[in-house]
């Protein structure tokens, strides 16, 4: 009797540790805040298809990069620009030649208030608002694109006292969505599925295209789940999600 209990226990432990459990791997991936919603959707599709799970850590591109240089345990890095993935390769944090552009980001001027933002962005010239939110231009590429747009329109100096900075594009979106700031420059993807409010999708000639690159990090080089997930980014399933959120293709 005792022995059969023992063998059952051994069998159970064996099952838990068996190839079935070992086959489903895991990857931890750093993701720029603007890509939060799409990557979660893509992650779900990836898990459904492969059985592997991916965990995400979201933040401003600059913040994530700093963490990576300090040994953060990420397998891959989805940036909101193409500079930092390249830098990661050059400085030895990334796998050389592994980076590629996974999406082209679009900037939008958005307000929760219907009618506040007109179809040509004239609201910026009128300046009839108290606060305009942007992401920190030093660490978030969408913030830099916002500054570029306002500079090109010749309104940046006039608007400077009204500018408030979110720590990343998610906080910027939250500032506008909560009404704490009347309007703000956010990522198109953040409001793509939200029909409310008013918006001006900023035309491409106002800012340098936001090429968002991904890079496989040294820590993820030995993790097949990480490289499989990067390959999955080029699959029709992933591309459909990108399109849904309004990202441009390269």
């Amino acid at each position: 009797m005792k022995r059969s209990w023992l063998s059952a226990a051994v069998l159970a432990v064996g099952l838990l540790l068996s190839p079935h459990a070992a086959r489903a791997g895991q990857a931890l991936i750093a993701v720029a805040a603007n890509f939060t919603a799409p990557v979660q959707e893509i992650g779900k599709a990836f898990t459904a298809k492969t059985g592997h799970t991916v965990e995400f850590s979201f933040g401003a591109t600059g913040k994530l990069y700093t963490q990576i240089t300090q040994g953060a345990p990420f397998d891959a890095f989805f940036a909101a620009d193409d500079k930092r993935p390249l830098k990661a390769e050059q400085e030895g944090y990334g796998v050389p030649g592994s980076s590629f552009t996974y999406a082209v980001g679009k900037l939008v001027l958005w307000s929760k208030t219907p009618g506040l933002v007109d179809a040509k962005g004239e609201v910026l010239k009128k300046g009839a608002f108290a606060k305009i939110a942007i992401a920190n231009p030093k660490t978030a590429p969408y913030g830099a694109a916002a500054v570029e747009t306002m500079t090109k329109l010749g309104v940046f100096d006039a608007l400077k006292p009204k500018v408030v900075e979110g720590n990343n594009i998610s906080q910027t979106h939250q500032f506008v969505a909560s009404g704490a700031a009347e309007l703000g420059f956010v990522a198109f993807s953040q409001v793509a599925l939200d029909p409310t409010g008013s918006r001006w999708p900023v035309p491409q000639e106002f800012y340098t295209p936001i090429h968002q690159d991904v890079v496989l990090l040294k820590k993820g080089a030995a993790n097949p789940v990480a490289s499989t997930f990067l390959d999955f980014m080029k699959s029709p399933e992933a591309l459909a999600v990108l399109k849904k959120y309004g990202y441009g293709a390269l």
Partner: peptide, 22 residues
């Protein structure tokens, strides 16, 4: 805060900015 220089960009925020831009 909104990280506004001279108004809400206090010391702890400035340190964060410097750290995140390496």
């Amino acid at each position: 805060g909104g990280n506004i220089p001279g108004q809400t960009k206090v010391l702890s925020m400035t340190v964060l900015d410097y750290v995140e831009t390496l």
